[in-house]
């Protein structure tokens, strides 16, 4: 759906995006993830044709965004960081304007506008001037606008920023729903958001891509070992004895809590992860010691993200060091 090849964007001496290449396949919800200032918005602006690249190639559905912009743009619905609303228009007038500008046929316009109003649940608000709408509703009008013209690809730049928790949940539900019929790319620096709506993620830092995979794979590849936190009414010695025969256990750390309860943080081999809770249950049942709490913890997207972005920091620093050394020798 999207092919990005060796994309570079420089602002004067500052490189916002450096040699970015990735592919986005159809029919998934992609998270575009990176710390603030990583180049997310710049990349999205280039993909949607709002910004020219310094060098590189972007193809949308086979059309080059720089060579055949009008054909490529017809495949994309874009919601920029600030919903681009004309405040002197009602939501309905605005949607009509966008539909006409996108070249939606007159006969099809009514149906499409009704559809996007329904999907974004604007029924009660579409007669109002957009300047009187709350931020959440403006965002929805922005999404509705992106859906007009029936593009295959929807690109949303930080769609939940500045919304209240209820609105955030509503927008996320909307994105999930859109993901069933469209390819959706959304940028965010909020990991829980990516986790709750996306199937794949592209992680960038400092204008470079550092990972592009499904969430599951990302967590598996970068997770290392998993942990189980256990609270048992038993002493530390009893716990260690009970765990000793289990192959999956790699290490135990115990802390004494009140009333004879001990908390154990158990490091487990992720290959045996599925069997561990059951084994633990039987191990403690057999010595007549009740488990009060059992929680599995494996590397989260947060861990992956921190690990990857700090790696990018380190490689950047070491690159700086070598440059500095080169400078000295010269």
């Amino acid at each position: 759906m999207i092919e990005v090849r060796h994309l570079v964007k420089k602002y004067g001496n500052h490189t916002a995006v450096s040699d970015l290449s990735f592919d986005i396949d159809g029919g998934q919800v992609y998270g575009f993830l990176g710390p603030n200032g990583a180049g997310k918005s710049t990349t999205m602006n280039i993909i949607t044709g709002c910004l020219a690249a310094t060098s590189g190639e972007v193809r949308i559905g086979g059309y080059d965004i720089f060579e055949q912009p009008e054909k490529a743009k017809k495949l994309v619905g874009y919601l920029p960081e600030h919903p681009p609303l004309y405040l002197d228009m009602t939501a309905e007038e605005y949607l009509k304007f966008v539909a006409e500008a996108k070249g939606v046929k007159r006969s099809d316009m009514k149906r499409q506008i009704e559809y996007v109003i329904e999907v974004t649940r604007l029924q009660e608000m579409y007669k109002r001037q957009t300047k009187f709408l709350s931020k959440g509703y403006r965002q929805r009008v922005g999404v509705a606008q992106a859906l007009l013209g029936e593009p295959e690809l929807i690109i949303l730049d930080e769609p939940t920023v500045g919304l209240d928790p209820r609105q955030i949940i509503e927008i996320r539900d909307l994105i999930k729903q859109l993901g069933k019929t469209h390819t959706v790319v959304l940028s965010s620096h909020i990991l829980s958001e990516i986790r709750s709506v996306c199937t794949s993620a592209i992680i960038i830092a400092k204008g470079k891509m550092i990972a592009n995979d499904t969430l599951e794979n990302l967590e598996n590849i970068y997770s290392g070992d998993s942990y189980v936190t256990l609270r048992v009414k038993a002493s530390e010695i009893e716990i260690r004895r009970a765990l000793a025969p289990m192959d999956a256990v790699m290490g135990v750390e115990c802390t004494q809590l009140q009333d004879g309860v001990t908390e154990a943080k158990i490091d487990i081999d992720s290959d045996f992860r599925d069997k561990v809770p059951e084994q633990l249950f039987y191990a403690f049942a057999s010595i007549d010691r009740p488990i009060l709490h059992l929680a599995e913890e494996h590397a989260t997207l947060e861990d992956v993200f921190l690990e990857l972005t700090s790696q990018a920091d380190i490689s950047e620093e070491s690159a700086d060091d070598t440059e500095a050394k080169d400078g000295e020798t010269v």
């Binding site: 044709g49 910004l51 054909k71 874009y78 681009p84 004309y86």
Partner: peptide, 14 residues
Amino acid sequence: RQKTDQLLYALPVS
């Protein structure tokens, strides 16, 4: 000022 220029750039019109 209203940042609607981004819409103009993103629309399939020259």
